[in-house]
């Protein structure tokens, strides 16, 4: 874990040793490798905060489910299982295209990297399209959170708070997840715009974005069975 002992005098950006100086090398790092490792530690630390933030919602969801088991089963029948399954497959596939894009960046295959990034973006669009379809369906039927919930004929315990709570968590968790997808789409566009800068020497943004995209996928991996596959 100890800091590398080479390149001690690489301060102020005036390397005396390097044959070439990478334009993305920041002055306060001795080496590019140190810079990359630091960025990676920072990214993983950020992902931990994401895990704990979504974790709070998962805990709330789980405890509410323990309180209203029957209502949650009833309510989840209003979610279309095929839509959830489709989105799961789309997101898993996009995770694969993303890791392929990272691999292409690592091996300086620019065209390949761009192609995989575009496919990832396309997958994200499909995901959001399905989400839009699902949400508009819920809005039409009045399957809404809290005081906006309209009782359904299928409610086996009419008047229970459990239904409104289910849809509150549904919209909060899939909504927060959807916001992460939207942010991810913006970041993919940024990566595509700067695609020419990435090569085997420096591909940190692609790598870090890959980590972000996988954690978004991972959250969906848990959301899917908890919401769509309760019974």
């Amino acid at each position: 874990m100890s800091t590398t002992t080479t390149d001690l005098h690489a301060h102020g950006g005036h390397d005396s040793h390097g044959e070439h100086h990478n334009p993305f090398h920041q002055h306060h790092f001795a080496t590019m490798e140190q810079q990359f490792d630091t960025a990676k530690i920072g990214m993983w630390t950020f992902l931990v905060t994401e895990v704990l933030m979504f974790g709070g919602l998962f805990v709330g969801f789980g405890l509410s489910q323990a309180k209203y088991p029957q209502e949650f089963v009833d309510a989840h029948h209003h979610l279309q299982r095929w839509a959830g399954s489709l989105n799961t497959v789309v997101l898993l596939f996009s995770s694969w295209t993303m890791v392929m894009a990272v691999h292409a960046a690592q091996t300086s295959q620019k065209a390949r990297m761009k192609m995989f990034l575009w496919i990832t973006l396309l997958c994200a669009c499909v995901f959001m399209g399905v989400k839009y379809y699902e949400y508009s369906h819920k809005f039409e039927e009045g399957l809404l959170p809290g005081m906006f919930y309209h009782s359904q004929p299928t409610d086996t315990i009419p008047g229970s708070h459990g239904y409104a709570t289910f849809f509150a968590f549904y919209f909060m968790m899939t909504g927060l997840h959807g916001i992460h997808i939207l942010i991810g789409m913006g970041l993919i566009l940024w990566l595509l715009k700067n695609a020419d800068n990435f090569n085997s020497e420096w591909y940190t943004p692609v790598d870090l974005f890959g980590l972000y995209w996988h954690i978004v996928d991972m959250i969906w991996i848990y959301l899917f069975p908890l919401y769509y596959l309760i019974s």
Binding site: T49, L52, F54, G146, A168, M172
Partner: peptide
Amino acid sequence: ILATPVLAITLVLLAIEKTFHIGIFDPKYG
């Protein structure tokens, strides 16, 4: 790093509960 995200989501839940009357923390809504 480990604790603050939970506060963040708690406060969001509280604000949403207050706005939409969702039953998470308030016994009035379950």
